[in-house]
């Protein structure tokens, strides 16, 4: 199971990076999205029932329980990435409007000294 998680997360991360390296604004944002999902998966796989049990209830034996903390962390991370990506989407939309194109390579005016 852990191996499947690792491979999936790695694939998603790779896809995200690939998309981000393209010139299109939409692909950039989808790439960011994929990366943040793959990180959630990575954190999810941090749960290792062999080393830790859940600290709260002892009605079930420890190996049958999952660690609640990574899940809480993922929930928080999802909420945050939801907010940030909504903003990025709006920003990307504005950028395509202002620049008249969704080619990221044309957005260079702030890099030059002029």
């Amino acid at each position: 199971m852990l191996l499947a998680f690792a491979i999936t997360a790695g694939m998603m991360f790779a896809c995200g990076v690939y998309l981000m390296l393209r010139r299109s604004m939409v692909r950039l944002i989808i790439g960011l999205l994929l990366i943040s999902y793959s990180v959630n998966l990575i954190i999810f796989s941090m749960d290792d029932p062999n080393t830790r049990g859940a600290p709260i209830i002892d009605s079930v034996e420890e190996s049958a329980m999952s660690d609640p903390l990574p899940q809480a962390l993922i929930l928080t991370a999802i909420v945050i990435s939801f907010g940030v990506l909504a903003f990025t989407l709006a920003l990307g939309y504005r950028a395509t409007q202002v620049a008249g194109t969704d080619n990221i390579d044309t957005l260079q005016s702030t890099d030059r000294g002029t």
Binding site: M20, L28, L32, I35, S36, V39, I42, I43, M46, P70, L73, A77, V84, F87, T88, L91, G92, R94, A95, V98, A99, I104, L107, Q108, S109, T110
Partner: peptide, 23 residues
């Protein structure tokens, strides 16, 4: 908008790496 887009993208990547490291 242009500056903001660069700022957002790179800082998001940084946050992502931070999150992986924390996990």
């Amino acid at each position: 908008i242009e500056g903001g887009l660069k700022y957002v993208t790179l800082n998001l990547i940084s946050s992502t790496i931070f999150l992986i490291a924390a996990g």
